[in-house]
Structures are given as structure tokens and as C-alpha cells.
Design a binder for these strands. Structure first.
Length: 586
DNA sequence: GCCGTTTTCGGCCCGACTGTTTTCAGTCG
């Protein structure tokens, strides 16, 4: 958390310096900010262990910035920012979020019109005060108003899971255009980041004009932002923006590499090119005027002396060094997954509604979960309903778990009768109480095929208590898996505070598996925690936490997140066949 | 303000588009 706080301050300082036309310093602050944001270890811990010297070891942090981090740790603020803010007291975060508005214009708006925030900006634009400023005009003013409108409705970023299905649709439609030779998503979508600003699509075509015409007239397009000869930006009815770029086929690889990013990854790649006497751009890799690569990404990475790097890893988080040493991990793939152990059947709710022995049926019932699992080509599915503490979710008690067991046994014997190896496992998602105990008796837990335990209440306790709480649950010999460990809900709820390193240590000792929850708004463990767990040799499982059968398709997002955390097939236990999986459990 | 198998000083990624200009600054990715 503290890393994020300091990262935000450095980012803001960078913007203020940019505003004042300071050269080079802004980039330095920006770089430091980004590095802090993705730093796996807490700067406070680093500082405690090694002081200023240890801080300086962080990439992008030198003497001056290390001092500023120390200042923040000691006083809770950084004077430099305060002074800069005094000079131009505006809400930079809010204003820069408006498309087309950067710090230079924000400064002018403040000096000339006293605009400090979104509200002031909107008022001034509506009164047509902006169009008359030198450097601004009618169109700029209208764009600002549009930008504000968009911002108010969409809050700027979307969950990957909200956007990706739309992107697949757009791509499928564009594939039908006969001038389209190659097509791919690019940008943060291709890197499968958990949230997405806008959609980037890349096409190879000899007739860019025709492709662009088709793109801007697609169904669902409500506004056309920009339409050049090789690119276009549009807004879709669902309130997200999409950029299309069209390049010749010989540049498709270099353009795909370039537009996939991340920015930081690309900067390093370009530097490598320069050191080799080459130049890398979206048009290709060049020696002088001669194009030596560009058609595919593979040949570009190869000519730079690197393995091809999967998009999910391209965050300049040591993937380039690893690719140079030809030691990239073989990332897990969607079709490695053999089953999903976290599926809710709503058995309890249906019991209450008087379905009795029929509780396995119905839209959300066990039989439909099985049907979906078979559709997905799984070898097993795990039924893990909530337990009694979660009365609101109709959590099951010990007796109801026994009833459910009988029902599941019956279903399994039916599969055996048909000579199928498909297996239904019975588990539960038990509740970890505030003191770390489990809401279901050990004898009942022991009878299940597996036990998931998760925190569902009192998410805001102190770091120490939360850590102890989870550790106690992991030490329970019946608890096999901890679900959505930090409790975060992306863009809605912060992570609970805990000592993750300590938790990993105990997970390793006790053989407890950590869940990568695939729900688009959870993705918990997140990428950097997955990477930490992998390093520690802690096993993980990718589960969907499906509350409806169709949500079992969320598995794709969990796999993407696992790939962002460098996870391989061997790190993820539900890549195992059922017998081996059961042996992994406590 | 950071960084270094060309450097402890002198570099810092690069191109396209927009809207405003009358040759270019600002913004974006």
C-alpha cells in the first residue's frame, strides 16, 4: 500500500515539473513511480532492513528520491509536492483524466480562468470561456465537454472481463472484411491487464482506407474521434473507446510489438536496438535504411537476441533479462486446466425453497455445473457451497453437507455406469472466523474431498491479526485451499492488510494451496503475488468461484492473471488429473 | 534526477495526429 502512495506522489511531482517545463526530471520521477508501483516488496520493509542504501538499489531510485521516500516514511508527506502544489493548486489527477487535456493546458486554464477541478472546467466550457483562449478553440472546448461526459459515465477504466468479450466480437466482425489480412488485439488488452483504459486493435491490410471505413461504420459505434489514413478512434455504445491501426503486412509484427507495449518494455527494447546499431519502430527493425525484421514479433525479438516474450509478461519486470538468458518460463495455458474446484450450486437456497432431494437441479444446480464442466472439456468439477456462517448465502451446515454428499455420490455412480472418468468432487467454501477458526466441525470437513476456506467478514482488521487469522486457518489439517486471500474487489474494495510473505511461508510449510480467483473483479491472487508464491514454491489453483454455470468461463481471466504472474503448469494444481490432485491435498 | 560491457558526465524512445497556427506545441500511446 505504501508503495502505491509514494508512487502516486512521484507521479504527481512529475506532472508538476512537466508543467513548469523542467526537462528530464519528469521522466525520472515517472520512472521511479512506475517501478514503485510494481515493486513486489514493501519500501517500508526495505528501508527498515537496509536504510537509504537499500532504497537506492531499487531501479530508478537514486540519492535524491531515496531521501524523499525516507521523508515520506518518517513524516507522511513530501515537501516538494506541497511546494509545487502551492504554485498551481489544481486537482491534476482529475483534470488529466479528461481526454486531450495535459498539464500544459491545465496550467493555462488555471492561470487564465482559475480552473482547479472538473467542476470548474465544466462550468467554464459551458460558458464558452475556453474557446477564446489563445491555443484553444471551438473544437478543443467541445472535446473537453465530451471528455467530461465520458469520464462521469465510465469512470475511465473497465474490468478486463467486461471488455474482452466485446473485443472478440469486434475482431470477429472485422475478420469478415476481405481486405483484412491479419488482425489482433494489442495494448493492455493483449497483455491481459486486470483493468483496461481503451481497446487497441491492429490490422494488416493493403487497403487501409477501406478497412477504416468499415471500422467506423460498425454497429455499436456512436462517435468517431479521429479518422486518419492509417488509424481511427471510435467510441462504442457500451461506453468504451477503441483505436484501430492499419499497417502493411511487412510491418505487422513490429507494429504489434510496438502497440502491445508496455511502454516501459518498449523503451528497453529500443535501447537494446540502439546498442546494436539498429532502430526499432512500429514500422520495423532497421539497420540504417534497411528493414531487417518487421513481419512477425518473433523475428524482432530474435534479432534483438531475445526469446519471444508472451504479452502478459511485457511489463519490464526482468522479463527482458530472462529472455536474453533464454530462461523464460513456459507459461500455463487455458487448455492445461482440467477442472474447477470452486463452483457454487446454491444447494442451501434450493433446500430452503423446498426442493428437497431435487436440490441438485435447476439453473444453478449441480447438474448444470456438471453440464458446463463437460462442455469445457474438464475431467472434474468441485462443488463448494458456502457454509453455515454465511446465512445470507444459505450456507450449509454439517447435516446438509452429508445430504449433499449422498446426492453427489449418486451422480458419480451414474458416470461410472457410463464408463466415463468424469468426477464430481464435494468440497465447501468454509468461513474463516475472526479468530481463525472454521465455521464447520473438523469431523464434517474431514469427510469432504477438499476444503476451501475463505475470509468473508471483518475484512478490515489489523495487519497482525489478519495474518494470524489466516495462518491459523492454514494450520487446520482439513483446510486445503484458501480462497481470494486479500479480499479485494477491483475498483470497489481495497485489499485486507496482511503480511503476505509470512503467509507464504506457512502455506509452504503446511502444504496449503492458494487460490487464484478468476472472477474479473477479484483476480486474487493478483499478478505480483502469484510471482511471489511461485518463487516460494507455494502451489496455487485457478478457480472461478462461479455462482452460475456460465461464470465457469471466467477461468480464462484467472489463467491470464496466472500468466502475468509467470506461473507454469506445474505451479497450478488443477492442471493435474483428479487422482494426482487429490494426493496433493492434505 | 537517474544511469553506465562505449560514459561518473552527458545523455535521456519516438512517431502520429489534432487543432491551432502560419511553422508548431500539446497530447497520446
Amino acid at each position: 500500500m505504501i508503495n502505491q502512495e509514494i508512487a502516486k506522489i512521484f507521479h504527481e511531482i512529475a506532472q508538476y515539473l512537466e508543467m513548469e517545463d523542467v526537462v528530464f526530471k519528469p521522466q525520472a520521477y515517472e520512472k521511479a513511480s512506475l517501478n514503485l508501483e510494481i515493486l513486489p516488496d514493501d519500501v517500508e520493509e526495505i528501508y527498515k532492513k537496509g536504510g537509504i542504501a537499500a532504497l537506492e538499489k531499487i531501479s530508478g531510485i537514486g540519492k535524491a528520491l531515496a531521501k524523499k521516500i525516507e521523508e515520506y516514511l518518517k513524516t507522511g508527506k513530501i515537501k516538494t509536492l506541497k511546494e509545487l502544489k502551492k504554485k498551481t493548486p489544481v486537482n491534476i489527477e482529475e483534470l488529466t483524466a479528461v481526454e486531450g487535456l495535459g498539464v500544459k493546458r491545465i496550467k493555462i486554464l488555471y492561470k487564465k480562468l482559475g480552473i482547479k477541478n472538473l467542476n470548474g472546467l465544466e462550468k467554464a466550457a459551458k460558458k464558452h470561456k475556453i474557446a477564446s483562449l489563445s491555443g484553444f478553440g471551438e473544437k478543443t472546448e467541445n472535446n473537453i465537454l465530451d471528455g467530461i461526459k465520458f469520464l462521469k459515465r465510465s469512470k475511465g477504466r473497465f474490468l478486463l472481463g467486461e471488455i474482452l468479450p466485446n473485443v472478440y466480437k469486434i475482431i470477429n466482425e472485422l475478420k469478415k472484411v476481405k481486405e483484412v489480412e491479419k488482425i489482433s488485439e494489442a495494448g493492455s488488452i493483449r497483455r491481459r491487464k486486470e483493468t483496461i483504459g481503451d481497446v487497441d486493435i491492429l490490422i494488416a491490410s493493403p487497403k487501409p482506407k477501406k478497412v477504416i471505413e468499415h471500422f467506423v461504420s460498425m454497429s455499436g459505434v456512436v462517435r468517431i474521434w479521429g479518422k486518419g489514413s492509417t488509424k481511427a478512434s471510435v467510441r462504442f455504445k457500451k461506453e468504451f473507446d477503441a483505436d484501430l491501426r492499419v499497417v502493411p503486412e511487412k510491418s505487422f509484427g513490429s507494429a504489434l510489438q510496438y502497440f502491445t507495449g508496455s511502454k516501459e518494455h518498449n523503451i528497453v527494447l529500443r535501447k537494446i536496438a540502439i546498442n546494436k546499431g539498429l532502430k526499432l519502430s512500429e514500422y520495423g527493425l532497421f539497420r540504417g535504411a534497411k528493414r531487417i525484421a518487421g513481419k512477425t514479433e518473433e523475428e524482432i525479438y530474435k534479432k534483438l537476441g531475445l526469446q519471444w516474450i508472451p504479452p502478459e509478461m511485457r511489463e519490464n519486470q526482468s522479463e527482458i533479462e530472462t529472455a536474453k538468458a533464454h530462461q523464460l518460463p513456459k507459461l500455463i495455458k487455458l487448455n492445461n486446466i482440467k477442472g474447477d474446484l470452486h463452483c457454487h450450486s446454491h444447494w442451501g437456497a434450493r433446500l430452503r425453497q423446498g426442493f428437497g432431494g431435487q436440490a441438485g437441479k435447476g439453473k444453478q444446480g449441480i447438474e448444470n455445473l456438471i453440464k458446463t464442466a463437460l462442455e469445457m472439456g474438464y475431467e472434474y468439477v468441485g462443488i463448494s457451497d458456502h457454509t453455515k456462517f454465511l446465512a445470507i448465502e444459505h450456507g450449509l451446515n454439517e447435516k446438509q453437507l452429508t445430504q449433499q454428499r449422498k446426492f453427489i455420490d449418486k451422480l458419480n455412480s451414474r458416470f461410472m455406469f457410463h464408463d466415463s472418468c468424469f468426477r464430481i468432487l464435494q468440497g465447501c467454501e468454509a468461513n474463516i472466523m475472526a479468530d481463525g477458526s472454521i465455521d464447520i466441525k473438523d469431523e464434517a470437513l474431514a469427510k469432504l474431498d477438499f476444503v476451501i476456506a475463505g475470509v468473508h467478514s471483518q475484512l478490515k482488521m489489523s495487519k497482525e491479526r489478519m495474518t494470524e487469522r489466516i495462518i491459523k486457518a492454514m494450520k487446520n489439517p482439513n483446510v486445503d485451499i484458501i480462497s481470494h486471500i486479500t479480499g479485494r474487489v477491483i475498483q470497489q474494495r481495497d485489499e485486507s492488510e496482511m503480511d503476505f510473505d509470512k503467509i507464504l511461508k506457512v502455506a509452504k510449510e503446511t502444504g496449503t494451496i492458494l487460490e487464484i480467483n478468476a472472477h474479473p473483479s477479484r483476480l486474487d491472487l493478483k499478478d505480483i503475488n502469484i510471482r511471489k508464491a511461485k518463487k516460494m514454491g507455494v502451489k496455487m489453483i485457478i478457480n472461478t468461484d462461479a455462482h452460475q454455470p456460465e461464470q465457469m468461463y471466467f477461468i480464462e481471466y484467472g489463467v491470464s492473471q496466472a500468466r502475468r504472474g509467470w506461473a507454469e503448469k506445474k505451479d497450478i494444481v488443477n492442471c493435474l488429473p483428479v487422482e494426482k490432485l487429490l494426493k496433493m491435498l492434505k
